[in-house]
């Protein structure tokens, strides 16, 4: 039988878990081997050591804040990324639709936003730090600047995908420009924008962790870079896993929202 016709059938869930199990196994063997040579090894802490570290960062209140550090860091990071992505989405929606639907504004803004999107966001982080200082807004601004131009350009593209026939048709139904945007362009663009947002989650986390590593006093990225100085791999590794899990949950929730709120979207795509 050809490989393209082979299906895992009821073993599919098993296959999905397999790579994760293998990775954990390899880690366990490697950590074990290193500890056999040097019981003080810090590079690959054993699962027990990691478990102890997790217990401390989840249970024990920090001297400064009175809350466990994982909690403080998670709240700080999530609030920054939520604000950054929220503002970026609103910018993407407004400018994308305006540039995609109204030729006058497209002529005015499209080359400009294309140019803006080519600026490497990290390159202007120093500028943001000068302007906003070590305030929260510098970190939020970096995420916005990193993600918004991408969302604007995508949304513009989606708005322009609407067929000419459809736009003529809605005009013969007596629609004004505003009504066309509200009842035709917006519903067309929304699920696609959320899809684009899913794709930009990786970039958003990248910018967040960069900003936190450089100028912050709490946050997931800050903690990882702080712990690097003490080679505390037993904290860094669970933090990385935790960030990955958070990113996964965000991606998955967006997928669920798209499916529930825009049931016609997947059907249309088929």
């Amino acid at each position: 039988m050809r490989l393209i016709n082979l299906n895992a059938g009821r073993f599919t869930p098993l296959l999905k878990i397999l790579p994760f199990v293998i990775l954990a196994l390899i880690y366990w063997i490697a950590a074990d081997a290193r500890h056999a040579l040097n019981p003080e090894d810090k590079l690959l802490p054993t699962f027990e050591a990691i478990g102890d570290a997790i217990k401390i960062m989840v249970m024990e209140p920090d001297e400064l804040t009175g809350e466990p550090i994982l909690y403080t860091d998670t709240v700080a990071s999530l609030s920054r990324i939520a604000q950054g992505l929220g503002i970026a989405t609103i910018i993407g929606l407004i400018f994308g639709i305006v540039q995609g639907t109204l030729p006058l504004f497209r002529a005015l803004l499209s080359p400009f936003s294309a140019a803006i999107s080519l600026i490497p966001p990290i390159a202007i982080l120093p500028i943001l730090l000068i302007i906003f200082g070590l305030d929260e807004s510098a970190k939020v601004a970096l995420i916005v600047i990193g993600v918004a131009p991408f969302l604007v350009r995508d949304t513009q593209q989606y708005s322009m995908e609407l067929s000419e026939e459809l736009l003529i048709k809605v005009q013969t139904l007596g629609a004004s420009t505003w009504q066309i945007i509200l009842r035709v362009v917006l519903p067309h663009v929304m699920p696609r924008l959320l899809d684009a947002l899913r794709l930009s989650l990786g970039a958003a986390w990248l910018f967040l962790i960069t900003a936190e590593a450089i100028a912050s006093s709490e946050g997931l990225g800050y903690r990882i870079f702080l712990m690097r100085r003490y080679m505390e791999m037993d904290v860094i590794l669970p933090y990385v896993a935790w960030i990955t899990l958070l990113a996964f949950v965000m991606d998955w929730s967006l997928a669920v929202i798209i499916r529930k709120v825009f049931p016609w979207y997947r059907k249309e795509k088929k």
């Binding site: 067929s163 026939e165 459809l166 003529i168 048709k169 809605v170 013969t172 139904l173 007596g174 629609a175 004004s176 009504q179 009842r183 035709v184 519903p187 067309h188 825009f262 016609w264 979207y265 249309e268």
Partner: peptide, 25 residues
Amino acid sequence: GVVFQKYTLFPHLKALENVMLGLEM
């Protein structure tokens, strides 16, 4: 009013809503 060969329905609206749209606006 116009009817083209295709592509003139609003994919996010059910059949009834497609007809209602003109009146709603």
